[in-house]
Design a protein around this nucleic acid. Structure first.
Lengths: 195, 195
DNA sequence: TCCGTTGTCGAACAAGGTGTTCAGTTACGA
DNA sequence: TCGTAACTGAACACCTTGTTCGACAACGGA
């Protein structure tokens, strides 16, 4: 591992303290003073590692994204392949994800999650034969919006659905539209280079 | 009108000041002190009308929702009828909506917007023959998520698309899925009461 | 093992935001 | 015109933030 053992320890204590506190009170209500008390860490120590609360939050996210298994081995068998695994992963890591992404978590993490997912979806659609265009980007926004909407609804306890049900709802809502757009794209390409 | 002229004046000054300040600095950076200085209103006066910043924000939203024209005259000719008018309305009221709903605005208003829209979509789908169910609610979440995603992307300047283009993208993404679910629903109903 | 480097502590600090109180003033509307 | 209600503005106690500093402890390479 990289660096001093003390550094790792301190950073970990601070990150864990923030997660625990968000689950208690929600992100907005957590103060830096809360964090350092719970982490049992000096004030100056905190500021020597992080610039502020949000910095801790995003550092947490960076470690989450390391969990993203890029499929990469062979073509994904199914469109929107990320959906079910991600819903399942979220249920496994329920406490942490709820703290970071739910209404009680801050907006910043949600925004980063959107960006991340948008890149995944975009790549997948391009891999499936879509052409880069403004229209494609808007489609990606819709797909990501639908997915994040479901995720948020579940995290906020609005629905008791299982990952499989969430996945089914997600596919039912957006798969037909995505397929239609992909078909359009392929048809246009075929008529240009009819090899 | 209701009440004292001074009260109306004070509340209006405070609300306008908040909107202006959000456009300047973003919601988070605005302080109560900023607001009362800009509104030229006494500190105690502020707290006799609103409990805090967020209270002002939501009071603004309440007046926005008064603008929602319920269609109500006859059956809507088209599915997801709210889409284009709402994108257009948003462009007309760009400054205000951007202040309240964009990334610079606070999360609370966004949440309220979602709730509002969810009710609209749900009513429309029920009116179009869907049966109330958990699956329908999840579909509504997807549709609203896609719409709000587009709205946010546009408000945050990620896309130069026109309302018509946004509307087209929205429909392309979700209309096929919605139609499929509606068809499913109607078929099931027909097989039960085959009058 | 030794020793220079680095991290941590914890108290103290200034700056700035919050929400409340109160006595005095102003403007409303009946 | 007059009673009432709203507004003023200053002062307040309290909290949070981010910085600074000297003293101490832990790390890891030699």
């Amino acid at each position: 591992m990289s660096g001093d053992r003390r550094v790792r320890r301190t950073r970990r204590l601070i990150q864990e303290a923030l997660v625990a506190l968000i689950l208690d009170k929600g992100y907005d209500a957590v103060t830096v003073t809360d964090i350092i008390e719970r982490a049992d860490v000096g004030r100056s120590t905190f500021y020597s590692h992080f610039t502020d609360k949000q910095d801790v939050l995003l550092s947490n996210l960076d470690e989450l994204t390391a969990l993203h298994r890029p499929p990469a081995d062979g073509r994904p068998a199914r469109l929107l392949a990320f959906s079910l695994p991600m819903f399942e992963h979220v249920r496994e890591q329920e406490r942490l994800v709820r703290a970071l992404l739910g209404r009680r978590g801050g907006g910043p993490v949600y925004a980063r999650g959107e960006q991340l997912l948008a890149a995944v979806v975009r790549d997948e659609l391009l891999g499936a034969g879509a052409r880069p265009s403004a229209g494609l980007d808007l489609l990606v926004v819709c797909v990501v919006g639908a997915f994040m909407g479901l995720l948020r609804a579940w995290l906020d306890g609005e629905t008791p659905a299982t990952p499989a049900e969430l996945d089914a709802a997600f596919r039912a809502a957006v798969e037909p539209g995505v397929c239609a757009v992909l078909g359009e794209s392929r048809r246009q390409q075929a008529s240009r280079s009819p090899l």
